[in-house]
Design a protein around this nucleic acid. Structure first.
Length: 259
DNA sequence: ATGTCGGCATTGTGCCGA
């Protein structure tokens, strides 16, 4: 089973490029972030025509997550538990029904800039709620994954120019520590389970020729429960897509699972 | 090189978020 996470930066702006990618890459499951659309305005037809089941959790203008799946989706839930006041659409879960069930969580973690400040406080509070949900997933002792735009540069080697990110919410020590606290519960970061060393990025800013200069960061991640890690065949970043026509500023990250 | 997008309110362009 091939599963991708992809921050598309707007479904309306990205629709042609997204459909081209789907036709070419044929993911079984795709977790989308930053759909920037309410559910009612999401263009469902081209995805359903291609045989995808579609579950969205959107809001006006910002954020928004979705799941595409060629296999049936069950037990869909929307919103990260732990704060009934939180209106931001950043979390969706579903069970992919195949030979063996797989629980998938799609997430768009808050950016958090500027730090310090209320946006950074929200990021850290959101990560504490994420940790709580992560503990529950582990306790279930079943194949499950949490994937998406984490807005976390885990280590300096995950940035082309780490010094420029030193005071940024994506790389501050408290951000990295919160990410590690979740990892250290017992998750496998799929990309680092397969590939070591610098030079691997999933995001290049639209500004300042970042793509041309390969000035990227790795912020889109797959975290696997032990039972999902047992099934891991490969994890890769589809870097080439950043050079295509009208790209997102992120590229897809893939896992292949033995399912 | 203070360099780009996308969405929105709005109708020509400025603001926000990233």
């Amino acid at each position: 089973m091939k599963i991708a996470t992809f921050n598309i930066n707007g479904i309306k702006a990205r629709l042609p490029a997204l459909l081209d990618w789907l036709d070419e890459a044929q993911p079984d499951v795709a977790l989308l972030q930053e759909i920037k659309s309410v559910d009612e305005a999401f263009p469902r037809e081209p995805f359903e025509e291609r045989g995808y089941n579609l579950e969205t959790h959107g809001q006006k203008s910002f954020n928004g997550v979705a799941i595409l799946s060629k296999l049936p989706l069950e037990d869909v839930t929307r919103g990260l538990p732990g704060d009934d006041e939180d209106e931001q659409a950043r979390w969706i879960e579903a069970t992919v029904v195949g030979k063996q069930a797989l629980r998938i969580c799609g997430l768009y973690l808050p950016n958090g800039n500027p730090a310090p400040g209320p946006k950074y406080d929200y990021k850290l509070a959101w990560m504490a709620r994420l940790e709580a949900r992560a503990r529950e997933l582990l306790a279930a002792e079943e194949p499950a994954l949490m994937a998406g735009d984490y807005n976390i540069i885990p280590q300096d080697e995950d940035a082309a120019r780490p010094e420029t990110w030193k005071d940024d919410a994506l790389a501050l020590p408290a951000s990295r520590a919160a990410f590690r606290r979740i990892l250290n519960l017992g998750f496998t970061e799929a990309f680092r389970a397969r590939t070591r060393g610098p030079g691997h990025y999933s995001f290049w800013d639209y500004q300042a020729g970042a793509w041309t200069r390969d000035d990227g960061i790795r912020i889109d991640h797959f975290l696997l429960t032990p039972q999902a890690a047992d099934l891991l065949i490969d994890c890769r970043i589809e870097r080439e897509l950043r050079g295509h026509e009208k790209p997102s500023d992120h590229v897809p990250v893939w896992v292949e699972l033995d399912l």
